[in-house]
């Protein structure tokens, strides 16, 4: 299969969906003239025009709010957040407007929009340009939250998100944009709400997602050589969460580790731990282990950032301690 970058994969998804449906458009800061800071919009303005690939004022509040309003008026907008860290600026538009309108108004109108949010650690970008905030949004009913780990799912999930009639937040890790991976040439969709067992194993279930899922695979490889068989589950969707796949895997392996780049406290791992404690405690032969970032803002200096970062080694170490 051909290999393309994560960034190219998202571009293809945008291109295909904008070609198919003229109500799909995208707006955000620095996306048209510059092509997006990670090249993820390169070439789209030339093909679709500056009306459908819009450079906006620096105004996250109006970007998201206007996308909600446009969705109510019959469009299928995509908002680009530039950096996921900026979601705080437009939080009301996300959780009080975008997420609630369909339910609060008794299902009169859907809000078919996608919020693209580049997140995660890259280039020592420090406290306000590096965060992983996905767990905030699994606490909000009405939102769907997806978070691909590789180019194929990046394309498949973005296409699914654009076609979904619910508002979808699409987190894309900044360090993944330049990574290559196999992506089918024919059209396909990655289903929202379905996790994927990527490597089967028998000793421990390792649930992760986004860039960190790649660290999980590396950790599993190391441990495999040491005789520990790790089943790696790529969550892909944070909300609605695929309980069944997680519980089935834990039923098989009897051990559960969740790893994510976000801070451990109140993270996605906490929710998964609670689900398994409530619904699958009898499967477990060992306490659940969570691997996440320490409870600090993302620090700047290299040694500090390295101390903060979840790595394949840290995941492997945590798993070794379970045996």
């Amino acid at each position: 299969m051909r290999e393309i970058t994560f960034s190219q994969a998202t571009l293809e998804a945008m291109d295909e969906e904008m070609t198919r449906d003229e109500t799909v458009f995208v707006m955000g800061e620095d996306i048209a003239r510059q092509g997006g800071i990670f090249g993820q919009f390169k070439g789209l303005p030339a093909k679709f025009g500056s009306d459908r690939v819009k450079d906006t004022p620096i105004t996250e509040t109006a970007i998201v709010g206007a996308c909600v309003g446009a969705a109510l008026a019959g469009m299928r907008p995509i908002a680009d957040m530039h950096f996921a860290d900026f979601v705080g600026v437009c939080m009301d538009e996300i959780f009080n407007q975008m997420a609630k309108i369909h339910y609060m108004f008794g299902g009169q109108k859907t809000v078919p929009m996608v919020l693209r949010a580049p997140d995660g650690l890259i280039n020592q970008a420090a406290a306000q340009h590096s965060q992983s905030l996905e767990s905030w949004f699994m606490h909000v009913p009405g939102l769907k939250v997806v978070i691909p780990s590789n180019p194929a799912d990046a394309k498949g999930l973005l296409k699914s998100a654009i076609r979904d009639d619910n508002p979808v937040i699409y987190f894309e890790h900044k360090s993944l944009f330049s990574r290559k991976g196999p992506v089918p040439e024919e059209e396909y969709f990655t289903p929202i709400g379905k996790a994927k067992v990527v490597t089967e194993g028998s000793d421990v279930t390792l649930v992760s997602y986004s860039l960190c899922f790649n660290h999980a695979l590396e950790a599993a490889q190391m441990l495999g050589k040491e005789g520990i068989s790790v089943e790696c589950v790529d969550l892909r969707t944070i909300s609605p969460i695929d309980k069944d796949t997680i519980l089935e895997s834990v039923a098989k392996t009897s051990r559960l580790v969740i790893a994510h780049e976000a801070v451990k406290q109140g993270g996605v791992g906490a929710e998964i731990s609670a689900i398994v404690a409530e619904e699958g405690i009898d499967y477990l032969d060992a306490p659940i282990v969570r691997v996440g970032a320490p409870f600090t803002p993302v620090p700047f200096a290299k040694p500090l950032e390295m101390a903060y970062r979840v790595t394949p080694q840290k995941i492997a170490d945590a798993i070794r301690k379970m045996f």
């Binding site: 509040t61 206007a66 309003g69 446009a70 109510l72 008026a73 407007q97």
Partner: peptide, 9 residues
């Protein structure tokens, strides 16, 4: 901002 977006549409 919602009205602005509906007007944009």
């Amino acid at each position: 901002t919602l009205a602005t977006g509906s007007a944009l549409a």
